[in-house]
Design a protein around this nucleic acid. Sequence first.
DNA 1: CACTATTAAGTTGTGCACAACTCAATCGCG
DNA 2: CGCGATTGAGTTGTGCACAACTTAATAGTG
Lengths: 163, 163
Amino acid sequence: METLDTVPDEDFLRLDHQICFSLHAATRAFNGVYREALKELGLTYPQYLVMLVLWEHGELPVKGIGERLRLDSGTLSPLLKRLEAAGHVERRRSPEDERSVTVRLTADGTALREKALAVPRRIAAATGLEVAEIVDLRERLDALAARLDAVDPDDLGSCATGA
Amino acid sequence: METLDTVPDEDFLRLDHQICFSLHAATRAFNGVYREALKELGLTYPQYLVMLVLWEHGELPVKGIGERLRLDSGTLSPLLKRLEAAGHVERRRSPEDERSVTVRLTADGTALREKALAVPRRIAAATGLEVAEIVDLRERLDALAARLDAVDPDDLGSCATGA
DNA sequence: CACTATTAAGTTGTGCACAACTCAATCGCG
DNA sequence: CGCGATTGAGTTGTGCACAACTTAATAGTG
């Protein structure tokens, strides 16, 4: 089997070009298709991800949403404000812990779920993949992300110097 | 085999949640690792992608870069200005066609390639994947992106209404 | 109890993605 | 040739991602 060590630096840079680009392109292609499909719902793709989490849990603190989507408050705060302005969610300080803000679906936000049900099936159909393939791809991506998340930053700092 | 039609809407929304999130998370995990590795080069991940293209072609019009990375001038113009300010590239109007701007590597930008050679190998090692797996994943992502890019927007517009 | 450390959310600043637009250069057709 | 259509860059505005920071509330320790 061809291992990493047998590939020269030059080819590696080309390979890197390709995998970087592929992941980047696939994400943006997904984004583009979702953008179109979600237009009628008045949601962006990240807003849709937040709504998916809320449809599953009904009510969550900002922190809980952030943990599930790996987004920090710097991203979520303005996004949630926009969802609130659109009437999809309510935000209120938790009585038990005044630091925490609970995000809850409004009737409007709950109703939006019905409209959203048709979206993923169309998208999946557009990919031309079977359920098993989708699940497989998902598992590979999750494994990849887990590996990358576990990387010690100190192991990469010296990349640039080739040390 | 389980086909798309046998999965109820409810499960589909959950499945969607997962594949959306997985792709999103994998991209951001990749971004995070690259951000760290590229810090010493003074490049962001998208800037690195542009440099990869330039290292391969030496000199390209803005349009050529955009075609290869599927980015428009709205994204590239400011990004290229920053690369120019950093001294990595030069931009000049093409003499043959005054509309076109040619982007060319400076000596500094060319030299940066040597430093960059070590980066992808480290990243690949961090993923824990063999070359064959990387290539396979890349092919799947490319196929997925191609499928999604080919989707007719009109086929998605009616998603929301379930028509 | 007082005081420090930690935690949750929000703010600010930078950079990317993309839609919609402007402007100038070029093309192409009558 | 003249003139409308197209093309290539660039600008503007919105939204997301993330680092660094602020603020207020809570937890933990002596």
